[in-house]
Amino acid sequence: MNKSVKEKHIPGETGIWVFVLGDMFIFGLFFVTFAYYRSLDLALFQQSQLKLNQNWGALNTVLLLTSSWFVVIGMSAVRKNLRSMSRACLSLAWLCGFGFGVVKFFEYGEKINHGITLTTNDFFMYYYIFTGIHFLHLIIGLCVLAYLIVRLGKNKPLSEDLPLLEGGATYWHMVDLLWIVLFSILYLIK
């Protein structure tokens, strides 16, 4: 194991990296687009930002970071052939991810109840579109994690499923890292 870690290794199939890097590039364009339009109407963006609850955003960041950490521990367990441990870790990761979804659901509900929608202004248009696309990624990630948890329950040798598990883990970490930037630019930086 130590030997293979020291060797150069791409986790998962190469295809997942094409997808992940493509997604990161697209989100990179989202971040820059947001920052550009913000610079054109700074007052509107700053006033609108004050209506976001940054505590919800912070809680969601911690939930996704913790979820990612459980996936990392789960992958270590897979490599050590600890099946039930890896299943437990991925299940906890799923729960943290689901928690993110629940918080987001309440956050969207709170905004809509206050009459804040996609058409309120440019800031909220970007807020709903970017967090909405991210939310879609989260739902796909939760389905992938659920599939991996079921897969770990079967009596197949763990080594056979390693590329699949690594690919799913890589995707889930990407969901986490994109949120880190979204949280900073949408909620925190005034």
Partner: peptide
């Protein structure tokens, strides 16, 4: 996250 969790530091 990229270097440690996604293991890119070993890629």
């Amino acid at each position: 996250v990229i270097m440690h969790f996604m293991e890119v530091n070993h890629a």
